[in-house]
Design a protein around this nucleic acid. Structure first.
Lengths: 220, 220
DNA sequence: ACCTGTTTCAAACAGGCGTTTCAATCAACT
DNA sequence: AGTTGATTGAAACGCCTGTTTGAAACAGGT
């Protein structure tokens, strides 16, 4: 850690690494202070206690890390817009080994196991991106009802997020070197083509009119 | 907990709930013992220590919980096979509030944050299901190269797993009551139609002509 | 009844944790 | 220099954790 930075930002940086690696419960404030080259009492002086340090770390993570520029060009085709969205999403999700690495890992922890800090996270970061995706999907399927639109959005998001969530298992399944060939460009291309093909050619939803209709869909 | 069960299985059941809810680090052996109506020293007597209890809990979870019957009917169409796969996968993933609920939550924890216990987990339950999915996808796309087949498999799996991983955030995004309308039947139908449409109509992958073409020849 | 091995129990233990304390240090202003 | 306020430092404090202890309760066999 750079010693010329003020102690507070060194603590935030160290806490980010530590929390992202181990989670709130396992992370130790002593380790954070050692990593930040600060005294054990520094975190209490600057942040009050461990939990407030965590909250401020999460907030500082998504303030400078997760904002993506939304190319609002209404001229481009829906497919191009979706590709841009997927590319932006994946580039953030797959960011590995980069200097601002811990920010993404920390936010993914928040997604899976929400704490009090994830309220503002959803409101300020996730929801705008979600609404943006819904806009794009509506251009594909103007007739789709809201519920199906949500499901489509989750289909796109789920494909992307899987390469962060399921990475450890995926590496064991197909090997690390094969997994490395699934790089940003390849996955952007695959997920976009997969989703566009689905969105353009999937049959309309089956209208559910009564309780017996669900059984009918089961039989296909 | 039923008091007629021997203490050891009561401890396993209680530990499963506790570990699935809070994770290994946050879960307290005292709480486990209270939940199991056992003494605080019981876990040490029966399992040695907390970590061995955790390992045995994970193993007991996938021994009786995660095995799905594979309908190997080669007569049915690929779409029907995929629907069966998605249905089976989702029914396990979405199992919330059911008696063997904690088994799935615990295994998903292992997937995201692997421990020593997840080696056997991947080998004995994940990989067979993954190979089965690859078989189905090969019937859709006999010409696809291996790497694309993996990506397609991850696209299907990612869609399903998202409803477990991203559930907390999804509930905040669209509301819990709307989320509850995305039940097993609806999601099975959606993911199957989405994926089948994609698999049947997505354009073939872009031929790689650059220096990475050597990798393509490697894959055959 | 007696012994024997297993299982339960209440209580205490040792260690690590977040946190607090208070004196020492530093920076800036009079 | 002297004073003031903010920051750092080393050490200690409680508290909560997993774990251990040794006696008590139980079961089965002789």
């Amino acid at each position: 850690m750079e010693a010329q930075d003020p102690t507070k930002v060194r603590l935030l940086e160290a806490a980010g690494e530590e929390f992202a690696d181990k989670g709130f419960a396992v992370a130790r404030v002593r380790d954070i202070c050692v990593r930040a080259a600060a005294n054990g009492a520094a975190v209490n002086y600057h942040f009050g206690d461990k939990e407030q340090l965590y909250v401020e770390t999460v907030l500082s993570a998504h303030h400078c890390g997760m904002d993506m520029h939304l190319p609002r060009s209404e001229e481009s085709t829906p497919a191009e817009q979706l590709r841009a969205f997927v590319h932006g999403f994946l580039s953030r999700v797959l960011a590995l080994g980069e200097p601002m690495d811990w920010r993404h890992r920390l936010m993914l922890r928040e997604l899976i196991q929400p704490t009090s800090a994830s309220d503002v996270l959803v409101r300020e970061v996730i929801r705008p991106k979600f609404e943006r995706l819904l806009e794009i999907l509506r251009r594909f399927r103007p007739d789709a009802e809201e519920r199906s639109l949500y499901a489509m959005a989750f289909s796109v998001i789920g494909q992307c997020l899987h390469y962060q969530m399921g990475r450890p298992v995926a590496e064991r399944l197909i090997g690390v070197e094969t997994m490395e060939t699934l790089d940003l460009e390849f996955l952007t291309d695959h997920i976009t083509r997969f989703s566009v093909a689905a969105l353009e050619s999937m049959p309309p939803e089956i209208a559910v009119t009564g309780p017996s209709a669900q059984e009918a869909t089961l039989l296909g």
